[in-house]
């Protein structure tokens, strides 16, 4: 409780910390999680499967492409947006972050950022960069490498 209250002020209001958490949060948190034992009675979970069905857009469809094309057309290309530039943002997070314990996906991403931005030689505290999780075929996190050089907007 103390923790939750304290943290509301932390993060300057950018970090959303729902309390109490919503049903969706709960489902994500506990469904198929926790210790499973072979109990004598295991209750059938009526209705739960309904909660997990979420109507997500399948991205590889014509409709989706048209929707994205439209969304792109609505953008005003001359408006630069007022947020921090993307390269600086990515670089900042990678610098600050973690060379320690990461998943394969994150290691992959990090490599990419180092290709893009050059790696800082002064690697930080944890010397074990290439240990866990970077096992090559560690599943769905791996993506084809697609790398675009950041280009200055015209």
């Amino acid at each position: 409780m103390t923790v939750a209250t304290q943290s509301q002020s932390r993060g300057g209001g950018y970090l959303e910390r729902p309390s109490p958490s919503s049903l969706a949060d709960v489902v994500e948190t506990i469904l198929d999680k926790g210790l499973v034992i072979d109990a004598y009675v295991r209750v059938s979970l009526v209705g739960i499967e309904l909660l997990t069905i979420d109507a997500r857009i399948v991205i590889a469809s014509v409709d989706t492409y048209l929707r994205f094309a439209e969304a792109t057309n609505r953008l005003d290309l001359n408006e630069t947006g007022n947020s921090q530039g993307l390269p600086e943002l990515l670089e900042g997070m990678t610098e600050k972050g973690a060379k320690g314990k990461t998943s394969g996906a994150i290691e992959g991403a990090k490599d990419k950022f180092e290709q893009l931005f050059g790696s800082d030689s002064g690697d930080d505290k944890s010397g074990n960069d290439d240990d866990e999780g970077s096992g090559d075929d560690s599943g769905p996190q791996q993506r084809p490498r697609r790398r675009k050089r950041p280009q200055p907007a015209r």
């Binding site: 973690a98 990461t102 996190q141």
Partner: peptide
């Protein structure tokens, strides 16, 4: 995906384990 990876990576110094 890139942003998500970088964001989780940025927090990983504060964690003892993480699962994406």
């Amino acid at each position: 995906h890139r942003l998500g990876d970088a964001a989780v990576g940025a927090l990983s110094t504060e964690t003892v384990d993480l699962r994406v």
